[in-house]
Write a protein that binds this DNA or RNA. Structure first.
Lengths: 335, 335
DNA sequence: CATTGCAATGAAAACGCTTTTATGTTAATT
DNA sequence: AATTAACATAAAAGCGTTTTCATTGCAATG
């Protein structure tokens, strides 16, 4: 079975190439007998259409691209898996490119290997470059920044709201000295969560002290160290609750507190964001704000496909987080 | 900037199409001046080669496919991320297909959208179908089953050895009644781990009781329930150690034991396989056998690319696991 | 009987590229 | 001066499709 092309099928069936093509693509112009005969021959020869030929001809690759730089962790697989499934459902394939190489990105995008792209987070493509992409009619959906115009949309989490709600929850437990463990300042989610936190504090007229915003960089270890340098505070200056930028950070925070004799949540409440797998297994189980990552992936793919197929314009969608209360937070006890 | 093709560049530069092609592809037959002029024009027009045209012409897509059915969990992202990076390094892209639809698989493979494929785990393609693929010169690397011939190779974990070593470790702690919590019987890893377990027991002349092999299906909940129905055993019949088929299973096991008043590891040692993220954060932290998933991905991609580019034959590679001792196991104490 | 209309099929162009082969020019050799 | 060699560039073929347009045969129409 060497590579068998449409030409072989045509020859074998004793018809022209166009007839074979029509038969295979179900174009209703053929004599039913001819059609079934052609199909029989095609099957018999194990014919499978060469997709490249097809693509070249009609300009559509039926492929979507997912471009990202370094990604890791649960976010990644939940996203990729949900997007991949959704692509499958819609008759597309998914190209995953984990790269920082702009050349790779550009040649794949502009080289028309994909019909549209999903772009995630840390990939800092300059705005001008995005504009360049767009001009060339490629549709894009961003997962990390709010954006919306004719050819580009976004599906993001409402991190401001999440930060706001989380803080409100901590306040409702009776906490008054709430610290925020910041993530990476260049990231949209990090900034938004902090803004939400500050907004809640202001609303309830709690002080927004400079020293209650701690750099944790979204990492366990950085946070651990940052908290370590806090624990010498006299107990009346010590925060009674920590809102960490993400779950990993919350874990680092708890580890540090534990190692200095604080009990969580007895002495101090701690919560995070994301609800990663570890959150529910950690001890104490983490109170957190869950993001529906799979849903984000599904929405993004659907939006992208609609932009491609139905020429819809880009939209911006915000997904609400969901407060998940577990064991790392509790009502403030004065003792 | 509408789509600009090689033809436009040729016209604009006042040369023929072939000259442009030669200039772009660095074929050293041109007058240096012509070449640099062409390149200048190309850049000026923002020309990017259409990859489909290229591919169709020379029959290589520079794309590898990763086919799998339902996958989830840490295994997935570690694999995809490492493979994706390695692809990038080697100048390939990675197509991820999460699908059970054989039609999708076949048309993408045989439709030559990829130069080679990685196939993972639960994807049960019948042997005849594999043969069909192979005949058609597609190269494949399997991650879930030992296999090796001219066009197909595999990179798998040495799960027999892992099971054997894990059991030996438990024996070395003084445990005598060691139970195995089995995974899914159709899976290679599951079976191999069990065989390794049995081999170790035999070697140390410990009994291999039927009732010490428990079905856990690689899941937390199933295992939890299975263990629940064990705990009524009189304490002299109760195992003093559990070797779970994977970490999730180990967690389910520990939860069940805890809920019946057993202390892990004081009363009973438990260990798992994989070393998933959760393992080190669980309480008690899990003793387990780590698989180097990223390494598996990297090896698989490299092997595949060598098969494609250097016409190497398929090989079978086995990766050794690594015993990670944490808090869920300890020396047997009689009390 | 000549024209028209229709149904079925085939021929050929086009998609964008690479590569083989052909062409034309100039320099080197006899 | 005539042939050859070397070089630079152009033309054309081909990759595997789809699709437009042309062709054929035949029944229906005037």
């Amino acid at each position: 079975m060497e590579k068998v092309t449409i030409k072989d099928v045509a020859r074998e069936a004793g018809v022209s190439i166009s007839t074979v093509s029509n038969a295979l693509n179900d174009v209703d112009v053929l004599n039913p007998e001819t059609k079934s005969h052609v199909l029989k021959v095609a099957k018999q020869l194990n014919y499978v259409p060469n997709l490249n030929g097809k693509l070249l001809r009609n300009g559509k690759t039926k492929m979507l691209g997912f471009f990202t730089t370094s990604v890791s962790g649960p976010y990644f697989y939940k996203l990729v898996e949900s997007m991949s499934r959704e692509c499958d459902r819609l008759g597309y394939g998914l190209n995953v490119f984990v790269t920082k190489d702009k050349q790779v990105i550009m040649s794949n995008i502009l080289g028309r290997r994909v019909d549209g792209v999903i772009i995630y987070e840390e990939l800092r493509v300059d705005e001008e470059e995005i504009a360049a992409m767009v001009k060339d009619k490629i549709k894009a959906v961003f997962l990390d920044r709010p954006l919306k115009n004719d050819t580009m949309g976004s599906v993001i989490f409402d991190s401001f709201e999440a930060g706001y709600e989380a803080t409100k929850y901590l306040i409702s437990l009776g906490h008054k000295k709430i610290a925020y463990i910041s993530g990476v300042d260049e990231m949209y989610d990090s900034v938004q969560r902090r803004e939400g936190y500050l907004a809640a504090l202001r609303q309830y007229q709690l002080p927004t002290k400079e020293e209650y915003i701690i750099q944790g960089y979204f990492e366990e270890e950085s946070t651990y160290n940052a908290i370590k340098s806090l624990v010498h505070l006299s107990s009346d200056k010590m925060p009674d609750a920590f809102l960490a930028g993400n779950d990993l950070s919350a874990i680092g925070c708890i580890q540090a507190l534990k190692s200095h004799g604080y009990e969580v949540p007895l002495d101090i409440s701690v919560m995070g964001f994301d609800d990663i797998d570890i959150a529910q297994y950690f001890s104490p189980p983490l109170t957190t704000v869950r993001n529906q990552i799979a849903r984000q992936g599904i929405l993004a793919i659907n939006h992208l496909v609609r932009m491609i197929q139905k020429k819809e314009k880009g939209e911006m969608m915000k997904l609400a987080g969901e407060l998940v209360v577990r064991g790392s937070s509790q009502v403030k006890i004065d003792r």
